Amino acid sequence: MSPRGQRRIDEIGEESRRRILDAAEELFADRGFDRTSFVDISERSGISRGSIPWHFKNKDGLVMAVVERAIDRVMVPERYTALPPLADLLDDYAAWVRSGNSALTFMLLTEAMSSTGTVHSRYQEFLARRRDGLELWVRAQRPGGVDPETASTRERGFAVALNGALIGIHLQALIDPDSFDLDEAMRSVATLFEKNLAEVWTTPPES
């Protein structure tokens, strides 16, 4: 097969994957995970049912791909190493929280906590990607002359704490959105964490 022919096949494959993800994202948000079938997604996307497991293996793989794409759409991974102010990153996060599909992460969390199968392991990967992105942002600001081993441990702890704060605010925004100002909450988190960022590298290690 010529390179041009292979390129065309790849383009068709990517287009099919996009249409499947678009349909699944809409249906999962409207109906929920359990009440959405491959048949529903096939009808909505116009892609044959048999193509869905070819792209995503199973329903668990599909829903994780939906969530990961939704996050990457507003929280562009490259921004973590571009040193934007933390407030700018959290603005991106707030935009995703307000999107209609961010509740999918908590729908998956319920299933992940009650199993040790594919969803559980994929959700671990999802959380790890979130932590890794935040850790990259912290590490990009590491001053010179800092012991890398000590710094790495503390940067990871900072990322875990920040990720936990964001998950907590996200959950409150989904359950009780009128009880607080999401933007103000994100500004408060940014201010608090940026104010204490220097302590990641300057606090003496515990003996």
Rank of each mutant, 00 (worst) to 15 (best):
L86S: 03
S152K: 07
D181I: 01
A65C: 02
A198R: 15
L86I: 08
E184I: 09
F193P: 00
F180L: 09
L136K: 15
I41L: 00
G133V: 08
E15V: 07
L62K: 01
A70C: 07
F38V: 08
H170F: 08
G13A: 12
D92M: 07
I71E: 07
A65H: 03
D22S: 06
E194A: 11
D92P: 03
M75L: 14
Y80C: 09
I20N: 04
E111D: 12
A24I: 02
G164C: 11
L174N: 09
A103S: 14
E14W: 00
L90D: 03
I20V: 14
S114P: 00
A65Y: 01
S2G: 14
I169H: 02
I47W: 01
L21W: 02
R7Y: 09
M64A: 00
N196M: 03
I175V: 14
A151C: 05
I20F: 05
R19N: 11
M1C: 06
V97T: 05
G145K: 05
R154F: 09
I47Q: 10
A29L: 07
N101A: 06
G13C: 06
R35G: 00
R8D: 10
I20Y: 04
L104T: 10
N196D: 15
A65R: 04
I12S: 12
R129W: 02
V119A: 08
P205E: 09
R73P: 00
D88M: 04
R129H: 11
H120Q: 11
R35A: 14
Q141T: 02
D91F: 09
L109P: 04
D183E: 08
R49W: 01
E43Y: 00
S114D: 13
D40M: 08
W96C: 08
A23T: 05
P205N: 02
